[in-house]
Amino acid sequence: MGLAHMKVSSSGQLLVSLALGSCVAVALYDNQKSIGALAHILLPESPTAKPENAVKYANTAIPYMIKKMVRLGARRGRIVAKIVGGAFMFIGSENSRVGQRNVSVVKDVLFKERIKIVSEDTGGDYARSVFFDTKNGKIVVKSYAKGQKEI
C-alpha cells in the first residue's frame, strides 16, 4: 500500500504499509464483522475542507475510513483503532516535528469520532512497517531499530 493510500477489507486480507517515518498508519477494526481499514497518513491537517486526496491528511482520512467501513457493514460503535508511526526521522534539523503533530491530530480526530485507541506504537526516531491482519485485527510492526512486535 502506497503513501497517502487507504485500503478496506472484509475478506480477511493482510493489509501492509511499508516504511512509515513521520507518517502515521491508522488501523480501524470491527471485530465482530472482521472488517478492517488501514490508511497511510502523511500530514496532520488538510489546508482545504475537501482535499483531492482525503487519505493524505489525518483530519480527513479518518472520517473517510469510517464511512467506507460502515458501507461494508461495520458498526460504528464497534470500531476500535490501532496507530503506528509518527517518528522523528531527521537528527540535527530545525525540525517541524511533523511526526509528533501527526500522532496528536490522529488522536484528536479519533477522540472526536468516539473511537477508542486499543494499542499504539508511535514516536521514536526509527522507521516502521505495518502488517495488519484483518482476520483477527492483529498488527505486527517491524523495524530495524526494534525488530518485530505485535500490538
Partner: peptide, 14 residues
Amino acid sequence: MDMAGAIFSSSLAE
C-alpha cells in the same frame, strides 16, 4: 539512517 521509503515520505512531510 533507516528505510528508504520512510526517508522519502518524511522529507515530503517536512
